[in-house]
Amino acid sequence: MAIEERRSIISRAAIAGHPLHPMMIHFPVAALIGLVAADAAWLLLEDPFWQRAALWLCGTGAAGGWLASIAGLVDLLSVQQIREKVTAWCHAIIAVMMLSLASLNWVLRYSAGDEDRALVCFYLSLLTAALIGLAAFLGGRLVYEHAVGVEVES
């Protein structure tokens, strides 16, 4: 099997050559992963602090994720080499599914007290976290295998 020569795929949504999407996703990912722990703490301890923390983590993670997705969408739609990658489309579709679940989770929490829907919200948090893992795996493939947004020395 021939080794494919890797070439850099430059991001259009970048500042001084640094792609925005990978810079923006860390905080929303941390919030949505932390949401699982906050939900577990609320279910185990029933301390209202964890209910409020979960609401804020969910809203922050969903809103921040949608903002980060804008930079990813700019690259997906404006860079032909990225558009040609099946991995990029799979990453985008899974990210939209994950952010939709996180948004639904936030709406459920905001519209009713967590006591009413605690278990449903916890399951949504777990599913969101699993989709984050899958999207992160695919995003890593885009960076490390396809050189999206990185400079490859020749």
Rank of each mutant, 00 (worst) to 15 (best):
M1W: 07
M1H: 08
A2T: 12
E5P: 05
E5C: 04
R6S: 14
S8F: 10
I10G: 00
S11E: 06
S11M: 07
R12K: 15
R12T: 07
A13W: 01
A14E: 13
I15L: 15
I15T: 11
A16L: 13
G17A: 12
H18W: 07
H18V: 14
P19K: 05
L20C: 04
L20F: 11
P22G: 00
H26I: 09
H26A: 12
F27Q: 05
F27Y: 11
F27K: 05
V29H: 00
V29Y: 03
A31P: 00
A31H: 02
L32S: 02
L32G: 03
L32K: 07
G34V: 09
L35R: 05
L35W: 02
V36M: 09
V36H: 04
A38W: 02
A38G: 03
A40N: 03
L43M: 13
L44P: 00
E46R: 15
E46C: 09
A53H: 01
W56G: 10
C58N: 09
C58P: 03
G59V: 13
T60I: 14
G61P: 01
A62P: 04
G64A: 13
G65R: 01
W66V: 11
W66C: 05
L67S: 05
S69I: 03
I70Q: 03
I70T: 12
A71P: 00
A71V: 05
G72S: 12
V74S: 02
V74C: 09
D75I: 03
L76E: 01
I82A: 03
I82K: 09
R83I: 08
R83D: 08
E84S: 14
K85I: 05
K85R: 15
K85S: 10
V86C: 04
A88G: 07
A88D: 02
W89G: 10
C90N: 06
C90S: 11
C90W: 08
H91R: 05
H91W: 04
A92G: 12
I94D: 08
I94G: 08
A95Y: 03
M97Q: 05
S100E: 05
L101F: 11
A102L: 08
N105G: 05
Y110V: 06
D114H: 10
D114T: 11
D114R: 07
D116G: 15
R117L: 12
A118L: 09
V120I: 15
F122T: 07
L124P: 00
S125F: 01
L126I: 14
L126S: 08
L127R: 04
T128S: 11
A129W: 02
I132K: 03
I132M: 06
G133C: 10
A135G: 07
A136L: 11
L138A: 09
L138Y: 02
G140N: 13
G140Y: 12
R141P: 00
R141H: 06
V143G: 01
V143T: 15
E145R: 15
H146E: 13
H146Y: 12
G149V: 02
S154P: 14
